[in-house]
Design a protein around this nucleic acid. Structure first.
Lengths: 153, 153
DNA sequence: TATTGTTATACTCTATAACTATA
DNA sequence: TATAGTTATAGAGTATAACAATA
């Protein structure tokens, strides 16, 4: 079947595995969220913007780890769908505070449930005992170790 | 620190975690392979092309899971670095067989060691007991389940 | 001078469509 | 007619540079 050396050369590679698991999940996620008219990335941005305190675009960009120019496009898309609203900050008029609309809040609630369900389904092939460990490992590896950070390096 | 709700909204997301772990590893991998003048993707292609039997570009594309037009660019890059050689197949003159050069074979051996070392280092933050389980989980999730495949669906 | 949002632009990765040569 | 390789082109996703408004 697919058990030859050439295939093993790939499935033993961490980079290949991470890339393809991510690709597979992105697909599953997009499918689950399609009825809501958003993808996983937009939903994540919406969730971040639904913080207890209104965030500026720069703050949101910092939390998500993208450039401020990228955030412009993300907010444009959400605003175009009527899910968030920009408002000039009264304290610092250079800033936009961006907040979910009522429609955005409702979509967030419902789509988050669909996302959670899609994640659960995606992880189904893993033995019950392995699932938590897998997520814990991902959380550990997603964070750059203190001594490898740009500033302190 | 980073323990607010807005951050939790991200670190509990499978898509976000997979994306960022992959990004972090791609960086680490690129750094480890820089002395060899290749990145992880090129090294993976080179490893696949070093099969026991010479592969055509289509065969290589199929194993790696990319389009044949993407394979053209990948082989162009490897050929430009003198790591592989194209040869018109004598059996079917539409096909190129692509094989590593002597230089490519040597680089493959040495760079593969650097890659393995980089992977080991990247997984260091995980407790010893969790490492094998993590890789096993990735291998499980990288494969599309039988009943979700395009053809049989 | 520095920062926020914006626009224009460019780069990477990847795919689709169309072409050439072979089958 | 169909397939392998190629080229031209386009679409994501992301970043850098430059600009206007504001601090």
């Amino acid at each position: 079947m697919t058990g030859d050396a050439s295939t093993a050369a790939l499935t033993s590679r961490l980079g290949y595995l991470l890339k393809h698991v991510h690709l597979r999940f992105t697909e599953a996620s997009a499918q689950a969220l399609a009825p809501f008219g958003v993808d996983g990335r937009e939903l994540a941005v919406l969730a971040v913007l639904a913080a207890d305190r209104p965030l500026s675009q720069m703050e949101a960009a910092g939390r998500i780890g993208v450039d401020r120019t990228t955030m412009v496009a993300l907010v444009d898309a959400l605003e175009g769908k009527g899910l968030v609203a920009r408002r000039r900050s009264t304290e610092d008029r250079r800033r936009n505070t961006v907040q979910p609309t009522a429609k955005g809040q409702e979509l967030l609630r419902e789509a988050e449930q669909a996302r959670a369900e899609a994640e659960r389904r995606f992880l189904t092939p893993l033995p019950d005992a392995d699932r938590d460990g897998f997520l814990r490992a991902l959380r550990t590896l997603a964070v750059v170790p203190e001594d490898e950070r740009p500033e302190s390096g």
